[in-house]
């Protein structure tokens, strides 16, 4: 029994090691983009142009020498990347330099294993994500922003109609105040016009 289990664990270890090697391969050798499937899906689903900056720190994706790209990382950042690459299970706090806040949250929420599996069915990412996850706090859940092809890390970017409803509720105090003010003003102006009309007619 005991033997069996240890063997099992060993098997897992080998599996992880393989994945790690694969991951390492990824950033040293190939120049292929990481998971453009998600981007392709969101573009197709929303009809909006999107780029890698939805989840990555660099709009051109993680490969390259620019800021937030793998070949442009410094030592400390590489360490963080290594750390983040180990987060196969959900719930691990990570801070990958090649991912933005939303990207990091996805990995935290689902774990890298799940994310890798989702590459085959990118539409499922929206349902797998926590409905309360709202990175930019603009009132539209990240899962919806992913489907809409809008920026989940910019609170001034979202589906216009959804933004309208959310903000209408958020700023209702100011809007009601302005509404009352305008009504009152126009009530006053209306009477001003009438009053002047009465006076001029008399003349």
């Amino acid at each position: 029994m005991i033997d069996n289990r240890s063997q099992h664990q060993g098997g897992f270890r080998i599996f992880y090691a393989c994945l790690l090697v694969m991951g390492a391969n990824y950033f040293t050798v190939t120049a292929v983009h990481s998971y453009p499937q998600f981007q392709e899906f969101t573009e197709k689903h929303s009809g909006q142009a999107a780029n890698c900056a939805m989840c990555h720190s660099n709009g051109n994706g993680p490969t390259g020498t620019g800021p937030g790209q793998i070949d442009g990382l410094n030592e400390e950042e590489l360490k963080r990347l290594e750390e983040a690459r180990k987060a196969f299970q959900p719930g691990q706090k990570i801070d990958s330099p090649i991912l933005n806040e939303f990207g990091n949250k996805i990995v935290e929420e689902l774990g890298r294993k799940e994310v890798l599996a989702l590459v085959k069915e990118p539409e499922a990412l929206a349902t797998k994500l926590n409905k309360n996850l709202d990175t930019d706090r603009d009132g539209i859940p990240d899962a919806e922003e992913y489907l809409d092809g809008t920026d989940p890390t910019n609170k001034f970017h979202g589906h216009p109609w959804k933004m309208f409803l959310v903000n209408l509720n958020r700023y209702k105090q100011h809007i009601l105040l302005t509404f009352a003010a305008v009504l009152l003003l126009n009530y006053g102006l209306g009477h001003l016009i009438k009053g002047i009309a009465v006076l001029t007619e008399k003349r």
Binding site: Q48, A49, T150, D151, H157, N167, L168, Y171
Partner: peptide, 13 residues
């Protein structure tokens, strides 16, 4: 106050 004008553009822009 309700609709950011830039919401009408795709975010990469």
């Amino acid at each position: 106050s309700c609709i950011p004008f830039e919401s009408f553009l795709p975010f990469p822009l």
